[in-house]
Every structure is written in structure tokens, then in C-alpha cells.
């Protein structure tokens, strides 16, 4: 039997999905601005982030109201906790995309070329893929996909370390590129954090679906 107020859980679920789509779109937009050296696109990212913040606030209000009025338990309660945590992660993803856009604008205003981005495009491809998969875990209720997301996070971490060495080397060789290299180190770090948030969301969804800790499951797999 479905009660009338269970529709409100569907609203929370839909808003989380919408927030996820907008956060992914903003990461792609920020990367596009950098790849195309497009200042106008970079400015769009900053404007779009406000909408992500609004949806987070909406989810917070919906969750607080549901807990206060409906006394949820079990999976319903886990869903609400996951919604709060995942929406916070997605809000942070939006902030990191904005940070990338701001740094891109800074680079473009100095007239630096953006034709050498090191391993950033590959990092972006992985991080966005992780975010999409984390959201698909949620939509399809597929906990197995969450494990693969964790494995990709390690690859992103490794690429970030490569980027750090690469841009440090670039700055050493050509001091005129210090401003660009510094911004790129920060942009790379932002992309690495986006992947971390995707990993967090995967862990939260895994808990929602199984009540177990994904970290512990992965640690057990590694110890075998």
C-alpha cells in the first residue's frame, strides 16, 4: 500500500536527480570553457551554480519536513539521510565547477594559451563518468556499480599527482608560465575533489541500498 505522503519521497528523489544533472552539466561547462578558451561560457557556470544551491535548499526543506511530519523509518529514513548528504556533495561539485570557471577566466584574461592541459581532460572524463554512474546507482538501485566507481577514484588521484608534477615541471622550465601552471594545479585539484564527491555519493547510495559501508566492502576485497 502506498500512502499519500510517499509521493513526497519521490519529490526528494527527483530533486536529487535534477541537482545531479545540473552539477554534471556545470562541470562539463567549466571544462568546455577551458578547452575552448571561452570566457562567456566560464561566466555561465557561475550563474548556473546558483540554481544548484537553490535545489539543495529545497531538498533540505523537504527532508526536514518529512522527518518532522511523517516519522520515517528504515529505507525511507536512509533515503532522507542520503539525500541530505548527497545533495551537499553535489553542491560542493557545483562549487568546484565554479572555482574551475573562475580560474579559467583568470587564465583567459592574462592571455595565456590553454592548449596544454596535461591530464585534465582525462580526469574530467573520469570524474563526470563517476558522477553519472553514482546517479545511475541511485536511479537503478544498483549497488554493484558503486564498487567500480571507487576503483576509478584511485585513477583520478593518480592523474592529479601526474598533473602536479607536470605543471611544476612546466613552471620550472618556463617561468612565464608560472601563473598558468599555478591555476592549472588548483584546477586539477578541483577536478580531483569532484571525483571524491562522486565517490562519496556512491558510498551513500551503497549504504542506502545495502545498509553496509562501501569502504569496508572494498577493504575486504583488497585484503582477499
Amino acid at each position: 500500500m502506498k500512502r499519500y505522503f510517499h509521493e513526497e519521497l519521490e519529490d526528494v528523489r527527483s530533486h536529487l536527480m535534477l541537482m545531479g544533472e545540473k552539477a554534471i552539466a556545470n562541470v562539463n561547462l567549466a571544462m568546455r570553457a577551458l578547452l575552448d578558451s571561452d570566457l562567456a561560457t566560464a561566466q555561465q557556470v557561475r550563474a548556473a551554480d546558483d540554481r544548484i544551491d537553490e535545489i539543495e535548499k529545497q531538498i533540505d526543506d523537504e527532508v526536514a519536513r518529512y522527518i518532522g511530519l511523517r516519522a520515517p523509518v528504515a529505507r525511507d529514513l536512509r533515503l532522507l539521510f542520503v539525500a541530505i548528504k548527497a545533495s551537499h556533495d553535489l553542491e560542493r561539485v557545483g562549487d568546484e565547477a565554479t572555482s574551475i570557471a573562475k580560474r579559467t577566466a583568470k587564465i583567459l584574461k592574462t592571455g595565456s594559451s590553454t592548449d596544454d592541459l596535461g591530464r585534465l581532460p582525462r580526469m574530467c572524463e573520469l570524474a563526470v563518468g563517476m558522477l553519472k554512474d553514482a546517479l545511475h546507482c541511485f536511479i537503478d538501485e544498483d549497488s554493484t556499480r558503486a564498487i567500480a566507481i571507487s576503483e576509478r577514484d584511485e585513477e583520478v588521484d593518480s592523474l592529479n599527482r601526474e598533473n602536479f608534477r607536470y605543471f611544476l615541471d612546466m613552471m620550472k622550465k618556463d617561468p612565464k608560465r608560472v601563473d598558468f601552471g599555478t591555476e592549472m594545479v588548483f584546477i586539477s585539484k578541483s577536478m580531483e575533489r569532484i571525483a571524491d564527491h562522486a565517490q562519496n555519493i556512491a558510498e551513500e547510495v551503497y549504504y542506502l541500498l545495502t545498509t553496509h559501508s562501501l569502504k569496508e566492502v572494498i577493504a575486504d576485497r583488497k585484503s582477499v
Binding site: M1, K2, A74, D76, L77
Partner: peptide
């Protein structure tokens, strides 16, 4: 029972979806 019941009927009952 109230956070992670093992049985689907239990879950349905405590979350008001029973019947």
C-alpha cells in the same frame, strides 16, 4: 528493525506500506 529490517514485510509494515 527500524533502520534496516531484513524482511520486506517488516519494512512494509513499519513504513506504513502494508496492506
Amino acid at each position: 528493525i527500524f533502520m534496516s529490517p531484513k524482511n520486506e514485510q517488516t519494512e512494509a509494515y513499519i513504513s506504513g506500506r502494508f496492506g
